[in-house]
Amino acid sequence: MTSAIDSRISTVTGTSVVLSGNDIDTDRIIPARFLKHLTFDALGEHVFEDDRKQDHARGVTHPFDQQERSAGSVLLVAKNFGCGSSREHAAQALYRWGIRAVVGESFGEIFRGNCGTIGLPCVSLAPEHAEEARSIGLADAGAVAEVDLGKGVLRIGDREFPVQIQASLRDAFLEGTWDTLAELLKNADQVSGTAAKLPYLTGF
């Protein structure tokens, strides 16, 4: 998370993990009890913990428990992924598990922002493309998925789909300036200037 090393992100290449449900909220990505930690370090192993346990109890293997997906880095999702709580823990848990890009129809707003600030791009694509990408990923755990931010495409299997990401955020990934703090710190004078014209900070 420091920009001392090369922090440019232009493509993310790897195998996929597929979650097909809509409205997967951040309480499910990382249950609230894991908020009671002073660091983010251990979150990776607890990602989707309750869903995984419940699947296990029903004799189903959750995608995050499938042996052949354990090195997956491209998460393929459906609609409104990451809705709910503003906890950055959700983004951190996915990142620390090994996810490096999330591709889906739509995202919870705060979640997508949180992912951006830790260098985890969330890109969206048309519902029919998202569904097709998920079925390719589901059918073949070995299929390589590649999110190419520069070209704005997802390649998976032998298919290629256009993906969208806000242009300024894409540029921040491509240029390695997604570390928001480094950017914000450049501007102390202008910050004081803005503060000086706010009535509530200057006695009205």
Partner: peptide, 12 residues
Amino acid sequence: IGTSQVRDVLAT
């Protein structure tokens, strides 16, 4: 906001 943004607000 998320935790990295909490950091950003504290620092800037």
